[in-house]
Design a protein around this nucleic acid. Structure first.
Lengths: 195, 195
DNA sequence: CATTTTATATACCGTTTGGTATACTGCAAC
DNA sequence: GTTGCAGTATACCAAACGGTATATAAAATG
């Protein structure tokens, strides 16, 4: 076929993720994906079987990589301050370098209900959450002050991280995802706004 | 017609909001809404003109009420601790009593892109955010420590609030939205995790 | 009591949807 | 060089989509 793009499969994945992130899974049609990817519908069905299969493959590819990086960053949970920084750095790096994925992840994270995206992403979100929860559970056994506040820590961490990324996407200001910002958030997290 | 429900208009709004919250705007069809509300499609089109008009009316009804309550709670921003409590209490009360609305609001809050829900809800989200931002701006002029951290405060507040509500929806544990939880979050916010 | 208005349903429209049957093309193996 | 297979496109499908023309029945208006 002498095609210039040797990997249509990957092209479909990245194109579909981009459209899903912008418009939402249900608002994007299979023809739309095919046209944007420069192929035709049956080609997409050849690789992924169905629209849901495509979404499943997108989540599998991107979320597994993300969770792996998150676990690496969480490998020294005894040091709360260091781990806090490393974890948030992973989130922010993905927001900067895998914008479509994080945008899509953000839009499905707080969904609960019966839709396709929720059903397919549930397991990944649970795994992601448990990495964070585990960090604060281990930290609690080393840092007395945290004990009894593990859940609060998790909620605060995830909440602030998502909110910061959301602000970045709205404003486009990259300083929101700088090391400096993480230091300030961590300072506020550990010692409060009056510090 | 001797109909038992004297207000089909309201019935359509609440039914549609419930479906939108569960499955997402694009995944819900107009027939589905009509059937669930116990009416037929043309009745819905008689009241709202279009599916988008229905969504617009839903947002207008619920969001205006919510923002009004938020503004009432923010009327004494000089007292940071008190205002912090009142604001979060409004969010949590809505999560408990207007579950469908908050569920829907949560699912659209972090969307950015080209979809219908984002376009129609944008103005409300901006107004909501500015109420919070304003609180910390005024507070900063009364409490020296906050100065320069206004944006950080806003991001943290919104993030933690949403995360807590999200946890409640996932677990169903009402204690997550109790006064006690707000006190603990506020304590952590003001004095840090080591307090 | 005739007339308009409000509220509802039946039956239909063109378009788009997710998905497929079928045929073709280039390339590798035999 | 024919066979087989991975990859791709044309052309199609039934079902579902958002939306409407039209009829009708009750209630308000004169």
């Amino acid at each position: 076929m002498m095609d210039e793009s040797t990997d249509n499969r990957q092209k479909i994945i990245s194109t579909a993720l981009n459209l899903f992130a912008k418009k939402g899974y249900d608002a994007v049609s299979t023809v739309e994906i095919a046209q944007a990817a420069g192929i035709t519908k049956p080609t997409m069905y050849y690789y992924f079987g169905s629209k849901e299969g495509l979404l499943s493959e997108i989540l599998n590819t991107h979320y597994n990589r993300f969770i792996t990086d998150l676990e690496k960053a969480a490998s020294l949970p005894e040091d709360v301050a260091l781990t806090f920084f490393r974890l948030m750095r992973v989130y922010f790096d993905y927001a900067l370098n895998s914008k479509d994925f994080i945008l899509f992840k953000l839009s499905i994270f707080n969904r609960i209900g019966e839709d396709t995206t929720y059903r397919l992403s549930r397991e990944y979100i649970d795994r992601e959450s448990s990495v964070i929860t585990n960090v604060f559970n281990v930290a609690a056994s080393h840092v007395g002050n945290i004990k009894g506040k593990e859940d609060l820590c998790t909620v605060s961490f995830v909440g602030v991280t998502h909110a910061a990324i959301g602000s970045y996407f709205h404003t486009g200001d990259e300083k929101l995802l700088s090391d400096e910002t993480i230091y300030r958030i961590r300072q506020q997290f550990l010692y409060g706004i009056y510090s």
